[in-house]
Design a protein around this nucleic acid. Structure first.
Length: 444
RNA sequence: GCAGCAGUAGCUCAGUUGGUUAGAGCACUAGUUUGUGGAACUAGGGGUCGGUGGUUCGAAUCCACCCUGCUGUACCA
């Protein structure tokens, strides 16, 4: 070992990136297997697109030009800029535009993939995370929007949530659109600021949101946020209209009717959900958890939604050639995993290997033989591959939560009966090799 | 990004108004047990006190800047 610490490589990870351990990965795999099963059942195609796209394909040509160059990781390759994808919807629009003539219309596809965002990370929020995304492209029917909600619901419940654990909140861009028309806001910046303010009703309450619609607001730390500077009269109109909580737009009326046909009722109309800015054109959904998620100090943390989506009728058209009204929904899988792991009753089991202790290296042939017998019977097992004495081997088996160890040394070889030690009870059995599999199966 | 608070061993933390060689618990290593884990006991390793510069006879402690984390806020396609 070198003592010189100065010129050693860093053990630290880049900010916002994390190592993910087995416990978490098992839960994630479990959710993924549920997703795939349900996607097949609902008739979606599986698709994978690359991690990198040309920056303009996933940003500059989108209607949302609010911050086209920020929030992504990019580099210049020869003359063109490439970016790591920040979601799976923009690459889908690119894929559809590129392959429009060959794909079925409507095109129903799902995708699981890592996405990257160059933003400030927080608890449960990373710069690299796994997203699940399902979309209908070329589907004008609102049945598609409704079915996405039903489908997400099925995934969540199959993964261990109950109806009282989550709710799908629904609204429509058409509501705010007509509202802005009514009070005659034309300035785009003002619209955006107002939308952002409305997005915070749940968290801040109407009083604070009204400040944001007006001059602005100071937060707890004393920082000031500039407001939308709307007239007091207009702010009142907005408050009155949204507080009524009546889904007056045609699209919502239709979707709620379809929900009834599906016998789906774990949703709620909430005009305060906004989701993104200029991207969506119609219905918008957000999947919210109803139980508290806590950090490692036991404090409830601001978790936000675990997913959402909506209708984006113009996205594919931005590539120029084809009109493809679309609707989709995504889930941040890591957030769902994090939330699910906090539910006490939730556990994913994986059997750990039985450890065959190496009492005498000259007997390796015997150990390999025992291992082959176990593995042929699909019993997870391993020959201790470290250097230590028996005590160390036992400590190892204990640490990896192995159910049992097999002791097969000089004494046992003589009688032809290995010793099987149950690591939870500490009991030892001296048994014939051919009985090993049966005895181990009793333990695990 | 902005604002507030924080950073001492792998982890959780103590360290009095600046004063000798910076501590504890857990974890780790070795031994008590030359073939037996989870308990106990004994011994041991491990820190440039987040970094750099400054004030001082003397800095973990005071000052400045930087880095990192947490919380709020902004942004989140």
């Amino acid at each position: 070992m070198t003592k010189d610490k100065k010129n050693k490589p860093s053990k630290e990870l880049p900010i916002g990136f994390v190592d993910r351990k087995e416990k978490e990965l098992l839960v994630r795999d479990f959710i993924i297997s549920n997703i795939r099963e349900i996607m097949i059942k609902y008739g979606f195609q599986y698709l994978e697109t690359p991690s990198f796209e040309y920056s303009d394909s996933i940003g500059k040509f989108l209607p949302d030009k609010d911050r086209p160059d920020e929030g992504v990781f990019s580099f210049k390759d020869d003359s063109k800029w490439l970016s790591l994808r920040y979601d799976l919807t923009a690459p889908l629009a690119r894929y559809v535009a590129k392959n429009y003539l060959e794909i079925p219309k409507p095109f129903k596809r799902y995708q699981l993939g890592t996405v990257w965002r160059n933003e400030k990370p927080g608890p449960g929020r990373f710069r690299e995370f796994l997203q699940f995304d399902a979309d209908f492209v070329g589907a004008k029917s609102l049945q598609a929007d409704a079915e996405l909600c039903v489908m997400i619901s099925e995934i969540l419940e199959k993964s261990g949530l109950t109806k009282s654990d989550y709710i799908i909140k629904i609204s429509s861009r058409k509501i705010t659109e007509s509202l802005f028309k009514k009070i005659n806001i034309k300035d785009n910046d003002q619209k955006l600021t107002a939308l952002r303010a409305l997005d915070k009703i749940e968290r801040l309450g109407w009083e604070e949101v009204k400040k944001l619609l007006g001059e602005g607001r100071k937060d707890k730390s004393g920082d000031f946020t500039r407001g939308a500077k709307l007239k007091a009269k207009d702010i009142e109109t907005i408050e009155e209209t949204l507080k009524k909580k009546i889904p007056e737009t045609e699209d919502l009326v239709e979707i709620f009717k379809i929900f009834k046909d599906y016998n789906f009722n774990n949703f709620e109309f909430d005009p305060s959900i906004i989701r993104g800015l200029e991207y969506y054109t119609g219905a918008i959904f957000e999947v919210n958890l109803k139980f508290d998620v806590t950090n490692n100090k036991g404090q409830a943390i601001q978790f936000g939604s675990i997913g959402g989506g909506g209708r984006y009728d113009n996205l594919v058209n931005n590539f120029g050639n084809y009109d493809a009204p679309a609707t989709g929904i995504s889930i941040g899988l890591d957030r769902l995993v994090y939330a699910l792991m906090q539910k006490k009753e939730f556990k994913v089991k994986q059997s750990k290997p039985v450890v065959i202790c190496v009492i005498d290296k000259n007997l390796m042939k015997e150990y390999i033989n025992v291992q082959a017998i176990l593995r042929n019977a699909d019993v997870s097992s391993e020959i201790y591959s470290g250097e230590g004495k028996l005590k160390k081997q036992m400590e190892y088996a204990n640490k990896i939560k192995s159910p049992a160890v097999i002791l097969y040394g000089e004494n046992e070889i003589k009688s032809g009966k290995p010793t099987l030690r149950n690591l939870s009870s500490g009991k030892e059995l001296s048994i014939e090799i051919k009985e090993l599999v049966n005895e181990i199966k009793k333990i695990i």
